[in-house]
Design a protein around this nucleic acid. Structure first.
Lengths: 215, 215
DNA sequence: CTTGATTGCGCAATGG
DNA sequence: CCCATTGCGCAATCAA
């Protein structure tokens, strides 16, 4: 369930996709696209004082996406983000010495059954990737290592994204302050001019009146 | 190493500390304090159209805080955030079947040595908390369970913080757009008034000139 | 010294 | 099949 608030037209700006050159944290403030969307970057667009800051692609973070934790026992997500960090019901905790790492060593999902499923519906077959997971096999280690790399990469990206969002928010805040100031200046100037004009109007009226009275 | 940009006076607003009442995501957009600072919240402050949005406490996220990864082999943090997710040098990877969970089962950090260190510098003593860590002992399980709870709580907080920052940035962006629009209106109005004034000035000058010539 | 908080990491499930 | 994302537990480290 992706929640996204009301980002009216905030999207776009995604046209100029280009690979992220690292260590450019302070200029490209353009992230928070769908985490699963791969490489989304926008043109850096100079962040001047009174210029339009580059738009944010604000897709909020999958709003408390229903932690799995056991299955169908989420207590309605603890009132939509609540004290969900409290101790697990302990029926969901695996206290195995393996370190809680869901040891599925050789769990054949059915044990001694022949592969009848291959003659039946293909949807009932053993997933074919969980068949005899030997944790010492090179294939397993290869998969694990690749996943570890992917995990590190993904978390790196997330960290970068978070920092960029923070910097973006900070820049927006400063920009906002400047804009408020500018509005104050303009308003005051406008009041001054209005006053002057009203004075002139008054004088003109007086002149007209005096002329009338003189005539 | 905490990097914090130039949050001039953005701090403050931390006076009104009060416990976070959950499910108030859209009003209190006030987070990103030091992660280790406990409960920092600020008065919600209404988020009107043209009003000052509540300040962010923008402490950016401990900027790539020198991943441990083995010890003193950080390659200067890979050029300050780079391709640090690439495969580890494999001399740092523990391929133990324990799941990479740094198995320190009963590793006494010195084995059969007597406790000579207690007579020497205290800095050389065995840390006294790592002595005979029995992974089956109730104390260990208790510590682990408590830490697991703390970890869940901390990550929950981090998730909430991230979402709040995103919402904050989005609100700031919308606010920014409105402010820019207002500035445009004011500028145009000012130009109009200036034009009118200059016209009057011109007429006044013409009148004076005609009078002069007439005379 | 003890305890909660933070954080990097690997694992497994899951999604695309 | 792949890779990306994510929740989780573990261990190291920080901070009170």
């Amino acid at each position: 369930m992706i929640w996204r608030g009301d980002l009216t037209e905030i999207q776009r700006d995604l046209a100029g996709l280009k690979p992220m050159s690292e260590s450019r944290v302070s200029s490209v403030i353009q992230e928070w696209a769908y985490p699963g969307q791969g490489h989304n970057h926008a043109p850096s667009g100079h962040v001047g004082s009174s210029s339009q800051l580059p738009q944010i692609n604000m897709i909020p973070y999958s709003q408390s996406q229903g932690l799995v934790r056991g299955g169908a026992d989420d207590r309605m997500a603890e009132q939509m983000m609540g004290m969900s960090y409290l101790p697990y019901p302990s029926s969901c905790i695996s206290t195995s010495p393996n370190g809680g790492n869901h040891s599925n060593q050789q769990q054949n999902h059915g044990g001694a059954q022949q592969d009848f499923s291959s003659f039946l519906l293909p949807s009932l077959r053993v997933p074919a990737n969980k068949r005899s997971i030997n944790k010492d096999s090179p294939e397993y280690r290869l998969r694990r290592e690749r996943n570890n790399i992917a995990v590190r990469k993904s978390r790196d990206k997330a960290r970068r994204r978070i920092m960029l969002t923070q910097q973006k928010a900070q820049q927006l805040q400063e920009e906002n302050k400047k804009l408020q100031l500018r509005i104050g200046q303009l308003t005051q100037e406008l009041d001054t001019l209005r006053h002057i004009l009203s004075q002139r109007h008054l004088h003109a009226a007086e002149d007209g009146a005096t002329e009338e009275t003189v005539i």
